[in-house]
């Protein structure tokens, strides 16, 4: 299991489109992914729950990946978010 705290650099934060990309990355991989902001957690596969976190540019989010391709998935997520 790996965990990483990322600062959201994406100008749009995790709006509908970037958040949907996030979910696609998670669904294409084999690892379990979750993310949290201010202690509230959402499963990486749920677009609605991710959007409910209301992530905007500058927020710090913690991403957890657990599975055979956790490093690759984390790298893709980092590239999307930062």
């Amino acid at each position: 299991m790996i965990e990483k705290t990322l600062e959201v650099g994406n100008e749009e934060g995790l709006h509908t489109r970037p958040a949907n990309k996030f979910v696609k990355i998670v669904k294409e991989g084999q690892s379990e992914v979750s993310l949290s902001k201010n202690g509230v957690e959402a499963p990486g596969k749920s677009l609605l729950k991710i959007m409910k976190l209301g992530i905007v540019q500058g927020d710090k989010i913690t991403v957890r990946c657990d599975g055979p391709d956790e490093n690759e998935v984390m790298a893709s997520i980092t590239a999307l978010v930062q």
């Binding site: 509908t16 489109r17 958040a19 949907n20 979910v23 596969k45 749920s46 677009l47 609605l48 959007m51």
Partner: peptide
Amino acid sequence: GYLEILTGG
């Protein structure tokens, strides 16, 4: 995105 919200469970 709407489709994902709808079918995401």
